[in-house]
Nucleic acid binder design. Structure first.
Lengths: 356, 356
DNA sequence: CTGTTAGCGCCTTCAT
DNA sequence: ATGAAGGCGCTAACAG
């Protein structure tokens, strides 16, 4: 129906020129108070609203930022996005979300389509951080990915990684200290008197999982524990996978008396299997997860987990972006923020003996 | 650094005009194969990428849609958004998300800013569906809200409500059949032999909660149960609130033997309180929640709940939007989709007697 | 088939 | 203090 009213409409009505209207609307000092007031009034009356699209085309700033995540319906990513949105909204930015479903191809198309949409920045958690040291990954997909990242940078669009990063020159990042999170979790189990601590890991080509593995290992070494590679098993972040792996662990000649998992979901699966086989948690076997998923604290047997403060992470990612986008100087500096995770100690690992 | 290359750049290089380049790029039939090939090749070589902003300004279509939700870090909304994104992405649309934190004021500013950004549609779950029959709501905020909705429609921007809707002429909606969900849940409890079923409700000015209340009530009446208003208690969707209310219920002279809650969170709180007081679930008291939050199936004592298929809801919302936006005809028709919820029966309500 | 022209809505020099 | 003109990048109508 009613076409949107433009500055020309209101200019015509007032027998002045669009430029004047523009000035009045933008608090330009070079204009008389009377005409400004008049313009403002009629603008309001005519329901004028600025067309940000035209402004964007003119200024080269769209006030949109793209956020790329593997999926949005996971508490972690949703919370990060929440933080980003809350921090960016007051600054006038809109948040566009894209999902990759952990597929590199999606990642590439998403980046391209965001770039075409002229976003002012791209904040992303990369789909699958292949180890650049592995020669088989170095070519094909990986180089295509690097190309796209460099493409972003060449266009002067700020790019910021969060959680799952990749080391690329000129790219800032916000992550948590996975090493520390794992170290603390393992130390906690040791403090509870556990002697044989297993580790449910995941694809260690992904930095976050590798760092958790290293933190676990270091805690053992620092406590003069022997490190037994047989107690480290990879599994996907699924409940069923956790069950399977737990079953294997319980079949060992010398089963573990504690499990530290990189995922709350596999930790939950392990717990289910352990209880089903008649063991007691935490008396016989303690379990610690990672991510502090909402369900971990809701369980009757609440699960100890490592909190990653995702909303805070999102806030910081947004702040780093704002700094970069507001930094006019030609010299761009990377910024690397490492958040400290917090161990949430709950029933699944709190030995009654120690409690008392 | 490298400024983005435009069609002018490639036109100049080829000594042709920008229009021709545009035609070549858009598969316009009126162009020779040779020049098209040439243009395509040099475009690729120069890393040309279409500026969607300019296109949007020209065509009036931004290929952005705004999604407004109370908050994104809730499994329900995140899943709906997932569905929306997955359905819209292949069609070339980007999804902009806004949060209201259940505040009407935020809702208004979000709508306005999306409109300014020239989105092609707005999909929203309204913050707080005040009962329009309540005279005290009819003025101020409510009318301001209606104004803004009508404003959207006047601009010919498709508006679609999901989950929390409001009856406005010309606005389509996708919701679930809350009445049926509640009815089925209550009937299930009756089938399990329960005689005195309490209901944890919530602000019934919000349609979804009122409909759940009505479904609960109708199931009782259809089974010749007496309806006891004392067994209906309002509480927020929080674990602690559920505990408090459960405590009250257990203090009654004649406590209930089952609870149907409009929220999984308050259901969980109730469960915690009930177990703590030494009652058995489901033998003494059965509990059923609503929403099928992930944790309900993870609990050792898994919680029966009503699934709302949020991802599916998102997909459908997106489809309804696409239909509207692709419908050229002047006659706009509302579309109202009502999804059928599914009761997920779990341990918290499955009486062993019946199981056997 | 291709070039010319104009305009989407806004802002910003440059005049006046 | 205001008007005139140009341009952001693209497409569509109209010529040729």
């Amino acid at each position: 129906m009613s076409k949107k009213t433009t500055i020309y409409d209101i200019a015509k009505k007032l027998n002045i020129t669009a430029a004047t209207v523009s000035r009045a609307l933008n608090n330009n000092p070079k204009i008389s108070e009377t005409t400004r007031a008049l313009v403002l009034k009629t603008a309001a009356k005519m329901n004028y609203e600025q067309n940000k699209l035209a402004l964007a085309l003119k200024s080269g700033k769209s006030f949109n930022v793209g956020v790329i995540v593997p999926r949005i319906d996971s508490n972690f990513f949703a919370s990060v996005i929440r933080g980003i949105e809350e921090e960016l909204h007051p600054e006038g930015y809109h948040v566009i979300i894209c999902q990759t479903h952990d597929q590199k191809s999606q990642e590439l198309t998403n980046v391209n389509s965001l770039l075409n949409a002229q976003v002012d920045g791209i904040l992303m958690s990369i789909s699958n951080a292949n180890d650049p040291n592995k020669p088989e990954n170095k070519k094909d997909i990986n180089s295509a990915e690097n190309d796209i990242f460099n493409n972003i940078l060449k266009k002067n669009v700020p790019l910021i990684f969060f959680d799952r990063k990749k080391d690329i020159k000129g790219v800032s990042s916000v992550i948590i200290d996975d090493f520390k999170g794992a170290y603390d979790a393992t130390q906690h189990l040791i403090d509870q008197g556990k002697k044989r601590i297993a580790h449910l890991s995941n694809n260690r080509e992904i930095a976050i999982f590798n760092n958790r593995y290293l933190g676990y290992k270091q805690a053992l070494l620092d406590n003069d524990f022997e490190f037994d590679e047989n107690l480290v098993i990879n599994c996907f972040s699924k409940v069923d996978e956790g069950r399977k792996v737990a079953k294997k662990l319980l079949e060992m000649k010398e089963p573990p008396d504690a499990i530290f998992s990189v995922s709350d979901f596999s930790a939950l699966g392990a717990i289910q299997e352990i209880l089903e086989q008649g063991y007691k948690i935490p008396e016989d076997i303690s379990v610690v997860g990672f991510s502090n998923e909402p369900f971990t604290k809701f369980m009757e047997l609440s699960i100890t987990s490592v909190d990653q403060s995702p909303t805070e992470m999102g806030r910081i990612v947004a702040k780093v972006f704002l700094e970069e986008v507001n930094n006019d100087s030609k010299i761009k500096s990377e910024k690397h923020v490492v958040l400290s995770p917090e161990l949430m100690i709950r029933k699944s690992s709190l030995s009654p003996a120690v409690t008392a």
